[in-house]
Design a protein around this nucleic acid. Structure first.
Lengths: 274, 274
DNA sequence: CTTGGTAGG
DNA sequence: CCTATCAAG
């Protein structure tokens, strides 16, 4: 029933750009797939429809990975996917909210004995309709999370939601928190919402492994020297049901060694559940 | 009064892209400016406003070249310019037609004792409004050419119109002419119009130097193996008044040595007028 | 600063 | 296939 599984999540910021070789030194994302210990990989912001995604990932699929994806109805935007070394027994697109059903933001895959979701939250924009849309998405995800948590209690089936929340939870989750208290991604109501979700029992697996430290960040703006200064945000999460979170024995935020080696503005966050 | 001058014309297909270093081997257009024998250079499709153009050409201007330009009213489209080692005594934007005054398609510069125009004809599209626009531009340029030719007769002041005509005149001016008889750029009425212009006395200087041969082509599509197969078009012309055309002693179409060394889909066409 | 879509060539 | 633009991140 329960078996070990390593799950990774990464916002690729365009799968086609991520896969592409950038320089003689930076061969893009494909070598990462060869080297990773992950059994399950959650992708966000593939910015590709299903056909484009399968084409970009062809070398990975040729290595035996299985793919489930939720393509966006808007071309070149959003898009989430789950890759698994094990077969994907079943997958579900959307978290139940009609509004977001075709937005390519939520995908659950049952694989390796657990449910793994790849989730991409809207960026939001303070005091605009885009922020209200983000908050509707937050509510929809919270409702789905309540059901998944309940199931873990009832029949022991565990889940983990991986992805780009576009919300930094605490002052430890963002380098320059003082400059961002009125910015989407660090608004009080967003942080409070995450506090409430965690209060229901869901566990922030990375923070559980690294309590009371700044970071580890997994997103840095492309602009200026944000990466070199490690002026990042921790907005990429593994939120796991308590039983699964208790099995996290290795938690790795894979910050690239150099700006020139990046193939996304995010980096992978990989957790081994024993 | 008349003095020797070397004039070059090149459609740069975006001055910012042309100037940029592309690889360790392909340093872009700047080395060409260092090496060219040209005294006057006509640019087409700069795809930049005056400020962007001056910024891109800053290293050239620092070497003492003088610049006149006709910026396009539509961002990222068209744009023509003339660079001269001699001062530019006067320049005139547009060929007299109100419709095209701000399109960045026609610029005359008086320099080095002659009038040099940089001209960029519309691409056209058979049987559409875009073709009718091209033909209105053709008529406007022909009217201006009649005036310039008349002046050369009256007071001996010579002119040359350089640029991308987007018209191949004869079967020798396009590799695959049979496949293009219904395509904009090789339509019967376009070819006939050029025949009529040349019938008034204007001279196609490159063809005068290379009669009865296929090419030399100065444009190759970026697509497929067009360049490697020399499947090109001769649509870049020097049309000179007869007195100036008679002084053409060297006529050079500067086809790049390899695809990887290109910095535009066109190549320079350079003529020395003794 | 980077992405992908787009119109244009 | 390549150029600039654009909205978005």
């Amino acid at each position: 029933m329960t078996r070990p599984v390593t799950v990774s999540t990464i916002n690729v910021n365009g799968i086609r750009a991520a896969i592409k070789q950038r320089s003689p030194e930076n061969l893009g994302m494909l070598p990462w797939f060869k080297e990773t210990a992950a059994d399950v990989v959650c992708l966000q912001e593939t910015r590709a429809d299903d056909a484009q995604l399968a084409e970009a990932l062809a070398p990975v699929l040729a290595d035996g990975w299985h793919l489930a994806s939720a393509e966006p109805s808007m071309k070149g935007r959003n898009g989430v996917a789950v890759l698994s070394r094990d077969p994907i027994d079943e997958f579900r697109i959307g978290c139940g909210a009609e509004e977001f059903a075709t937005h390519g933001r939520y995908l659950e895959a049952d694989t390796a004995g657990v449910t793994v979701a790849s989730v991409y939250f809207p960026t939001g924009e303070a005091e605009t309709d885009r922020q209200r849309e983000k908050e509707r998405f937050m509510a929809a995800v919270a409702a789905r999370m309540a059901a998944l948590l309940q199931r873990s209690v009832v029949d022991g089936h565990e889940s983990v939601l991986c992805g780009d929340w576009n919300i930094a939870h605490t002052e430890n989750d963002i380098k320059n928190w003082k400059g961002n208290v009125k910015k989407a991604g660090f608004l009080p109501q967003e942080r409070q919402w995450l506090t409430e979700v965690l209060g229901t029992g869901w566990v922030d697996v990375v923070r559980q492994a690294h309590p009371d430290v700044a970071g580890p960040y997994a997103w840095w703006s492309w602009r200026g020297k944000a990466f070199d200064n490690d002026a990042g945000w921790r907005i990429d999460y593994h939120l796991a049901t308590p039983g699964l979170a208790a099995r996290a024995t290795s938690v790795l935020t894979e910050r690239p060694a150099a700006y020139a080696l990046r193939w996304s503005d995010h980096c992978p966050v990989t957790v081994h559940y024993a």
